[in-house]
């Protein structure tokens, strides 16, 4: 693990891994979406609206996965003080926010024809909305710290504390009566027919690869930004 804390080694790895993840992610996502939107049969009750599954479910998982990544990176940053871990947490926040927003929007569009309402304040929907606001808070906080200076431990602690919402989202449909359906996919068990499940799996893998690629690309950008700033500062100091 210490090997990857070295920015040089990280950059050498990221320079070929980033395009690989992005291209394969785009390819798999495209396959899954064409498959899911045009070739999958309509659902027994929902009809054509079932197709939103192939965007909604991966987006929801990655929205939660993004915060899990923030929490783990924050833990590594707080305990081992790896600077790259702090960058990884910052880099995961925006894609996590985007996927959470996609999940909420697609879910709302699906809810109108299926449930008969755009939005309800049940446990699942509310906790997912809280996750969206947590992302906004985290991004504002980490950017303020990066810009104004201040301890990077503050966003890291926020990232760890916010992680408590993740198991709540996951369990919300089990603990409480909710309008949102209970989990269809649990450990080694699925109540989704294979015809839907296979393209869904492809979609989840594709979205995840994309997510990884975006995080790596953003980490490289953040590193470059830090290097530029350091160089400019050195130049300014030398000129003075």
């Amino acid at each position: 693990m210490h090997g990857f804390a070295n920015p040089k080694r990280f950059l050498a790895l990221a320079s070929w891994l980033t395009p690989l993840l992005l291209v394969s992610g785009l390819l798999l996502t495209a396959i899954a979406l064409v498959w899911g939107l045009f070739y999958v049969p309509p659902d027994r009750l929902m009809g054509e609206t079932v197709r939103i599954l192939f965007i909604h479910v991966p987006a929801a998982w990655l929205g939660m996965g993004g915060w899990t990544a923030i929490a783990i990176s924050s833990l590594v940053f707080l305990v081992w003080k790896h600077p790259l871990a702090g960058l990884a947490a910052r880099a995961a926040a925006v894609p996590g926010l985007v996927f959470t927003a996609i999940c909420l929007v697609t879910g709302s569009i699906w809810g109108r024809p299926t449930w008969g309402t755009w939005w309800v304040w049940d446990g699942r929907l509310t906790s997912m909305l809280v996750l969206l606001f947590l992302y906004f808070g985290y991004i504002a906080l980490s950017q303020a710290v990066a810009r104004e200076g201040g301890s990077s431990r503050i966003p890291a602690i926020f990232g760890l504390v916010g992680a408590i919402n993740i198991p709540i989202i996951n369990r919300s449909v089990v603990w409480w009566n909710s309008l949102h359906q209970p989990p269809s996919i649990t450990m080694g068990n699925s109540s989704i027919d294979t015809e839907f499940l296979v393209p869904l799996a492809v979609s989840v893998i594709g979205f995840s690869l994309l997510f990884g690629g975006v995080v790596l690309a953003r980490m490289r950008a953040l590193l470059a930004e830090i290097q530029t700033e350091a160089r400019l500062r050195r130049k300014a100091d030398g000129g003075a």
Partner: peptide, 23 residues
């Protein structure tokens, strides 16, 4: 005053309607 339909966690294509009782 208002009814909302609650979807279950089963996703089944129309071709497999025989599963209705099970679901």
């Amino acid at each position: 005053d208002q009814l909302l339909a609650k979807h279950d966690e089963n996703y089944v294509p129309r071709e497999l309607q025989g599963m209705d009782q099970h679901s």
